[in-house]
């Protein structure tokens, strides 16, 4: 399989064999490869705040021997003066070998990929796509459960605006899994996703009560209620405390349930769960480095 020169923009761009190949290379990238991308430069163009995505991409590049340039605040760029994404990318491609872009504007990564002659990786475009998060989630599930097929996976929280949940559900639909969507009605998984998943033969269940289904789950994927995605602040206030998982959850779950979260969390998982064997969210974040190392190496054609 050849990923050289490919853009990583949307979960829709991948086949199952693409995903399996990326997971395989990510496993290999857990080993040290300090010279693999020697002489290569990554441009990180971050038009909105990010902790994990930017730092783990930078860490991935440094660990492979490459260098990084970029910005993490559009106020310090010419975009502030009105420069377009298109022009910003045409400039960045002159200075680098691969670009990671994050923007609150949906579709900007797709546009960046059309503008650039070098590979572009989407580090998140608004509520649309966040493919590298989806890949590290998939990698984490496979790593901790040793399989994906047959798992019962619960998604809890903001399923309406949560791009990670939407993308992960679509990616998981390549496998025979069962999905439980746990959210208040107003934040439930959009109907068109449920329809698409059911058309692919995925059993989908919807509920607003986590304890109603928690006993069945192998994975509970929790997400933050994202203030920044709510068009109406009053609406956010209504739902921000919808779910608060704490130690009482342990009486209602299987012994080997694993709790995932794309982070940051703002209270939906109490810290008292962190030290239990169920919590894998920090390991999940750490897996981001191996997955992003794999993606950088793959799109630069240097994975071997």
């Amino acid at each position: 399989m050849n990923f050289k020169g490919r853009d990583i923009i949307s979960v829709r761009d991948f086949s199952k064999s693409d995903l399996l190949y990326i997971l395989k290379i990510a496993k290999e990238m857990e080993k040290e490869k300090p010279k693999l991308l020697d002489g290569k430069i990554l441009a990180t163009l971050f038009f909105e705040p990010s902790t994990r995505t930017r730092l783990s991409f930078e860490s991935a590049m440094f660990r492979l021997g490459g260098k990084v340039l970029g910005f993490s605040d559009e106020k310090v760029t010419s975009v502030k003066k009105g420069e377009t994404v298109w022009d910003t990318i045409k400039m960045a491609e002159c200075y680098s070998d691969v670009i990671v872009i994050r923007s609150p504007v949906e579709g900007s990564a797709r546009l960046a990929a059309e503008a650039a002659s070098i590979p572009v990786i989407n580090g998140g475009d608004g509520a649309n796509q966040h493919p590298t998060q989806m890949l590290l989630d998939l990698y984490t599930i496979q790593k901790i459960k040793k399989k994906i097929e047959g798992l019962k996976i619960g998604f809890l929280g903001d399923l309406k605006y949560g791009r990670t949940v939407n993308s992960l559900a679509i990616a998981l639909s390549f496998w025979k899994v069962e999905m439980y969507f746990i959210a208040p009605d107003a934040l439930q998984m959009p109907e068109h996703y449920i329809k698409e998943l059911r058309e692919k033969g995925i059993k989908c269940h919807k509920t607003s009560d986590v304890f109603e289904v928690s006993q069945k789950l192998d994975i509970l994927y929790v997400t933050r209620i994202q203030q920044e995605r709510f068009p109406d602040p009053l609406e956010y206030e209504k739902y921000k405390n919808a779910y608060r998982l704490d130690i009482t959850l342990l009486d209602h779950i299987k012994k080997d349930l694993k709790i995932m979260h794309p982070l940051p969390r703002v209270g939906e998982i109490n810290a008292e769960l962190d030290d239990t064997e169920h919590a894998v969210y920090f390991e999940q974040a750490a897996n981001g480095v191996a997955v992003r190392k794999a993606l950088l190496a793959l799109v630069l054609g240097e994975e071997k």
Binding site: V85, P104, L111, A127
Partner: peptide, 12 residues
């Protein structure tokens, strides 16, 4: 008609 789509921000 998505107000945060790139097509509403740039001439595309």
């Amino acid at each position: 008609t998505n107000p945060v789509c790139i097509t509403s921000k740039e001439v595309i």
